[in-house]
Design a binder for these strands. Sequence first.
DNA 1: TCGCTAAGTTTGCGACACAAACAAGTCTCC
DNA 2: GGAGACTTGTTTGTGTCGCAAACTTAGCGA
Lengths: 109, 109
Amino acid sequence: MRALPLDAQAVASLDRTVHEPARLAVVACLAVVDEADFVFLQSQTGMTGGNLSSHVKKLEKAGFLTIRKEFVGAKPCTTLALTEAGRDAFKSYLTALRTLLRVMDGAGL
Amino acid sequence: MRALPLDAQAVASLDRTVHEPARLAVVACLAVVDEADFVFLQSQTGMTGGNLSSHVKKLEKAGFLTIRKEFVGAKPCTTLALTEAGRDAFKSYLTALRTLLRVMDGAGL
DNA sequence: TCGCTAAGTTTGCGACACAAACAAGTCTCC
DNA sequence: GGAGACTTGTTTGTGTCGCAAACTTAGCGA
């Protein structure tokens, strides 16, 4: 059987921390706006608060974003931003996607 | 806060059936070769047999691929191929990725 | 004061990915 | 021809994870 132009192992081992759709949405948002507050992200992604909370926590645990809690007037407000590591991981992820898409372009898909 | 050029909800709701890395690798392989046998896929993806088996079963259940079992000489051989639905789902998925990447290109990532 | 809403977090459950164990048959070598 | 290794997959078990409902804490209005 001939060799494929596709690195299937690379695809199969994509980093799940950013690959997970919910987190990918969060990271993509933060990549374009640099920082955003919890409520804004919730509205953009359409996620429930609890869901967003747990994903944010996981991203923080991975060292991919920072959580800043402060009060704006009287209300609490959590602001999120990517770390350098988070941005790098996202860039690597995008590179992997581009590689895959290039192969598929070549195959007429 | 301004509107993003990014549809985060679309990202957050990517179809997990094909998005899952292991299955994405399988589907991508089948998309470029039209059909492939079990052992070949296993070598390409680096997955264990059991793992591949369960993912294949899930893709079949979703109607995304067909499983053909036959004997080649004395040995059993299962051959896998995408269905029309599987190919369509994969194309839609690729379209979603391209949309995301275009936004990220625009943001200098 | 008594809800009501906002802003998150914690908890619980169902789904899932993964690999080790297993099954069924074939080939090899003595 | 029979013992054991190999090939080709499947089943089972376990730990992880995603998700939303319930809960917490605190300001705001009537």
